[in-house]
Design a protein around this nucleic acid. Structure first.
Ligand code: MN
Ligand code: MN
Ligand code: MN
Ligand code: MN
Lengths: 217, 217
DNA sequence: TATATTTTTTAGTTTTGTCTAAAAATTTAT
DNA sequence: ATAAATTTTTAGACAAAACTAAAAAATATA
């Protein structure tokens, strides 16, 4: 499997969890920042290899084989991110691009030894789940901070936007995975929130709150 | 720089240390298991990018820029090999192919953090020197075991052949980097050696002895 | 329903890296 | 010095992965 094929599988996998039904050519093109015609070419190739179900004009979905491959790529991506943060002291906003390269390294033994070296983590530095060697994922129930009611409290367990801009903003505000956040009040006008985080009071916009995952406590 | 360009630079670099003078198209083709015509094509491209000095029919050599790039690839290859052996518990005969992939990961920060994580090793698991961030190499004087005289003793500091067959043979015989080897006697007929290694006596062929580097003591 | 708009596919190019076959240059042998 | 052998380069082709422009299909609108 080529890097390009792997990137397409991964894109389809990620779109599947957001869009539920069949994935459109255009959705893939947008996600991969490429042209729809290139996507069509690749879908044919992936279909030939039994990695996707594809019918002209009808969108695409992963076969079992394709799903498993996609999960293994995501597994590698997230394990490498853990390695970079935990072992090499990268910060969580620096690791994505490097992991994009490392996820294509081919060696089952390597992934599994890396997994063991890292003590079989179940989540990456952004709170995303890491599939195990069989492809199984531990789902943690979580919701957006913006969905919490006034006076409710949550533990920050993930980010929806993983851009370094957003992650660096969170660093600046002292928000990280594990932070305890209480909604003090919600401003009706712009849905901004007054929160207390580890005792510290501050105001955050709705945009921020709808990119933070929390586990209610 | 593409993977392929990097592989060519590395091949030329390795051939340079063996062949001294200008490197021939055929030597590169043989090393890379490709056709001479493919090599010619690539040499033109590398010359265009000022990575090699190339004159038709006259062979090729690395420019300063090309030499530095090659050293950085070798640096990555050998650091990753150290990582795989020291941290992930791979054996020294399993790491080369994985390092061939990892050497192409592009991130200066990654290499340097990995280097620090490994405590700035100067040699890889096969005894080959690791260029530092500036490309400098610590040369250790070493010679082939086959060059030692009777009654002389050496410490094993490297292997010339890094094939897994040879490395596994060494494992089986209990020979590793750091082993103290004394030449007890040399058989004139086939140049085989009776040696004692860490007290243990055994006989090895000339082929083995001329693939083992030692530091005389 | 008929028409307009959007989405998707097809057709034809381009770039990279490879190949084979043939031509050109260099080296070796007579 | 000439001929033979070897090495290297050129010419032309191909596969992968991208692109643009145009055609076809599906969807939305009047
Ligand atoms: Mn990532
Ligand atoms: Mn992540
Ligand atoms: Mn190696
Ligand atoms: Mn090595």
């Amino acid at each position: 499997m080529t890097h390009s094929e792997e990137n397409y599988l991964k894109a389809i996998y990620h779109l599947t969890s957001v869009l539920e039904n069949e994935i459109s050519t255009n959705a893939i093109a947008e996600k991969m920042e490429t042209k729809a015609s290139s996507v069509t070419d690749m879908l044919k190739k992936l279909a030939d290899k039994d990695l996707v179900h594809y019918k002209k004009y009808q969108g695409v979905s992963l076969t079992n084989k394709g799903l498993h491959s996609a999960k293994m790529i995501v597994r590698k991506h997230r394990l490498w991110e853990v390695f970079l943060v935990e072992k090499l002291a990268f910060s969580w906003d620096e690791v994505h691009d490097i992991a994009e390269q490392l996820e294509h390294i081919k060696s089952e033994q390597l992934v599994n030894k890396l997994d063991a070296f890292l003590n079989f983590p179940t989540e990456d530095p952004h709170g995303d789940p890491i599939p195990n060697a069989e492809g199984n994922i531990i789902k943690v129930e979580k919701q957006l901070l913006s969905e919490l009611q006034e006076k409710q409290t949550g533990i920050c367990v993930g980010v929806k936007d993983t851009s370094s801009e957003f992650l660096q903003y969170l660093d600046k505000q002292g928000i990280s995975l594990g932070s305890k956040i209480e909604i003090k009040s919600r401003e009706i006008f712009d849905l901004s929130l007054k929160i207390s985080i580890n005792g510290n009071e501050m105001t955050i916009s709705n945009k921020i709150a709808s990119n933070l995952f929390v586990r209610k406590v």
